[in-house]
Amino acid sequence: MLKIGITGGIGVGKSVVCRMFALLGIPVYDADTRAKWVMRYDEALKQELTAAFGPEAYTPDGELNRIYLAQAAFHNPENLKLLNSLVHPHVGKDFTDWVESNQTAPYIVKEAALMYESEAWRQMDEIIAVFAPMEVRIKRLLQRDPHRTQQDIEAIISKQLKEEDKMARAQHVIYNDDQQLLIPQVLQLHEGFLAKVKGVE
């Protein structure tokens, strides 16, 4: 089974691309959504996070205290590094279990913004980088998240790996720049992956 990673910075449209692969019948693993689930329900990780960040990491009813953790981690590089070092191994195991449950698929897709930062790319056979120009990303994010300012968005983007680096390291690039059609790009990659799987078989 081929394992295809999809990455790109905030606002490039990774989720839209992944929905297209899902419509083609390809299982999609959303690392961000699964990370939130694992942080809520993985008892071992909950103990590790509580030990590292204090009992405030979770609310009294067991929910993840996202605001507290975000403030603790994102304004302190060492805390952010610690948080990632605790969460990523558990999400990695969750992904491995998920792959095992999708063995009948010709290939699977994993969506992860931090594909390179978390070293998750090492589990993938090929990587797709989704690209959109900065001004397009900012416009999308201001529409999607009206509570955020342009300064907030630029601060988030500045902390992510540069798009040029992601594109240089990826085997494929999808341009979601509101100029080029997405569907033909996704279909071409889909057909190529299917052909590659059949060639292996």
Rank of each mutant, 00 (worst) to 15 (best):
R34C: 07
L142E: 02
L182C: 06
R144Q: 12
K166F: 12
G62W: 09
N84V: 04
D152I: 02
F53Y: 09
E164R: 09
L114C: 07
I6L: 12
I6N: 01
A155K: 14
Y29Q: 05
Q185P: 10
P133N: 06
L86G: 01
V186G: 00
I10W: 08
I26P: 02
A132E: 02
D94E: 15
E100A: 15
E56D: 14
N84F: 03
Q103P: 01
H75Q: 12
F53R: 01
L24C: 06
N79A: 11
H147A: 09
A31Y: 05
A195W: 08
F193I: 06
R148Q: 11
L86V: 03
V99R: 11
P89N: 09
H190G: 01
T50R: 14
G92C: 07
Q185D: 13
F74D: 06
V200E: 15
K93M: 14
Y58M: 07
I6F: 06
V28M: 05
R169Q: 07
F131M: 03
L24I: 03
I67W: 12
E164T: 12
P106C: 05
K198P: 07
A73K: 01
A22Y: 11
E63T: 10
D94Q: 13
M124A: 00
M115C: 07
M134S: 11
Q179N: 15
E117C: 04
V17Y: 02
T33P: 05
D152K: 09
L141T: 10
A72D: 09
Q150N: 12
Y175F: 14
L24N: 04
G11Q: 02
V87C: 03
E78Q: 13
